[in-house]
Each structure stands twice: as C-alpha cells, then as structure tokens.
Design a protein around this nucleic acid. Structure first.
Length: 273
DNA sequence: CGGTGGACCTGCTGGC
DNA sequence: TGCCAGCAGGTCCACC
C-alpha cells in the first residue's frame, strides 16, 4: 500500500493527535504480523508520553519520553489511525493503543505484511530494518550527481534501482513508475547508461511527484487511509500507474504494462527512452 | 553484482 | 450467476 507520500501523510496527520498524549494501555489482538508482534515490548509503552513522530523511508517512528520508540511498517495493507474509543473497530484491527484523551491509536492490516516493534531510541540506528536504508529523496541528499556517481559501471534497470531502498528510501512501485514517466526515461534502461542530465531529470521528477502526492494526501487505490481515516486523492493525478491501455497524457499512445523483478511496471513506450 | 522466483497473507476483480 | 486465476502501494531469502 503505502509509499513515502502515504507514510508522510499519516505522519503529519498523527502529529497533532498523538504528541503530548500518554499511553494508558496496549491491546494486542493478533500478534501474527510479518514479524511477530512482541506484546511484552509494546506493553513497556504504558505510561509513556509521545514526544514526536518521524518517518524514515516507509517506516513511522513514534518517540516517547521513556526512551522507547515504536517502529511501525504498514506493509501493503496496513492502516494506522486515531479514533474515539467507542468507534467500531475495523476488520483486521490487530493492535490498539489506548491514549489518555479517550481515543485509541489503532493498527489494522488485512494481509499482515506490516510490523510493529518497540526499540530503545538510542539504538534505533542499529535496528536491522533501518540500518541499510539509503538517503531520503526529499531532504536534499539525493542529487542527480550522487545517483550518477553511484551507478557508474552498473547494469541494473533504473526502475528496480529506484525501488531498492538501499539506493533511495521510500520509493515504491507507483512513484518509481510515475517519476520515470515524468523524466522521459524507459524503466528498462540500464542505470550505467544514464548520463548526468538524465539523473538530474530523474531526481527532479521524483521530488516533484512525491511532493505533489503529499500535497494531495497520498494515493488511495484500494486501502490507503490517513490518520483520520480519510482517502488521499493523488490517484487521479497518476499518469501511468495502473493505466495499462489508457492513452498517455502526453502523446496519446496506450500505456504499456510489463513485469520487472516480479512487479508491474507501467510506462509509455513512445515518451520514455 | 543482479536477476528470478517464491515466501509471507487476504481479498477483490475480470474473464470465462 | 458462479468460479477461479491473477493481481495488489512491501520486503526478505534462497538460488543461479
């Protein structure tokens, strides 16, 4: 489900609802996520006050004043939202964290590819899930120059490079496809054969599409909802993703679907070289 | 290095 | 109408 813009949308929405709140209790209904939920770890959050919410790649990090950070990944279908205690629960609502204002932070996940861990805040950098992540595309550390240098002599297709969180953090299937269409680059192009101007276009397009998607509150195709349970509306701005056979907005030729590394890739064979 | 295929799960859709 | 293959915003691993 969620890529950088969706996670960032949730982060921004959760901030005002969570920061300053104290955790009254934790209920783990079903610990069977991708990595089993350590119920004992979550229980250590009782009494802690939320001090801030950060995002790293597609992970959310809820910091508390007890020196513990709740690390959350939403997988494909995870949802994290705040609701009044009496509000009916969603299907597959696996974890509920009761807050001191009569509301709950709730985690639901149909496919259970998500994860939730409590980690000591001073050891976050060492956590295996965060350790190998590449730079954030929106904080200025990713430049055309840096990607150009990182890819000399390498041969993988640019689409799978963009989706590899070790190259760049937070880019998934939708925004990799969208950025490459905006940059006019064929997703099958070998990274080593993209010159500096090409990488500049990729980085510009990537920043553009991520920023626009955040402004639109993310992309809701099926499951994504923000911290208050509302859909995002960037889906209507997608130019290639999930648009197989539909006309390219730039040249009118039909969008093509191929498979790369087992994932659908959508692109315009006319506009992308 | 990188590519493939499968694993983990559940649910929806489209084509027959 | 009903069934089922195919597919889904992610990640990890084994294997070639």
């Amino acid at each position: 489900m969620p890529e950088l813009p969706e996670i960032e949308t949730i982060r921004r929405g959760l901030g005002p609802l969570l920061v300053g709140r104290r955790v009254l209790g934790v209920l783990v209904r079903d610990r069977r996520l991708r990595e089993p939920v350590a119920a004992r770890g979550l229980l250590r959050l009782r009494g802690a006050r939320v001090t801030g919410i950060r995002r790293r790649s597609k992970y959310l990090l809820l910091d508390t004043d007890s020196g513990l950070t709740l690390l959350v990944h939403l997988g494909m279908t995870g949802q994290l939202w705040v609701a009044d205690r009496e509000r009916a629960r969603r299907p597959h609502e696996h974890v509920v964290i009761a807050l001191d204002d009569g509301r709950d932070l709730r985690f639901s996940d149909t496919r259970r590819f998500g994860m939730m861990h409590v980690v000591r805040s001073d050891r976050l950098d060492l956590h295996p899930r965060l350790k190998g992540l590449g730079p954030e595309p929106l904080d200025g550390s990713v430049t055309g120059e840096s990607l150009f240098r990182a890819t000399r002599g390498r041969r993988r297709p640019v689409k799978t490079f963009l989706m590899d969180t070790r190259s760049i953090a937070g880019v998934g299937n939708i925004y990799a496809c969208e950025a490459l269409h905006r940059a006019g680059i064929n997703p099958q192009r070998s990274v080593g054969r993209i010159g500096l101007p090409g990488w500049d276009r990729v980085v510009t397009s990537l920043r553009e599409v991520l920023t626009e998607a955040i402004a639109a509150g993310g992309t809701t195709l099926r499951d994504f909802l923000n911290a208050e349970g509302e859909a995002g509306y960037f889906a209507c701005s997608l130019r290639v993703y999930d648009r197989k056979g539909k006309p390219c907005g730039r040249c009118g030729r039909p969008i093509r679907r191929i498979v790369q590394a087992g994932r659908s890739t959508f692109y315009c064979p006319r506009c992308q070289h």
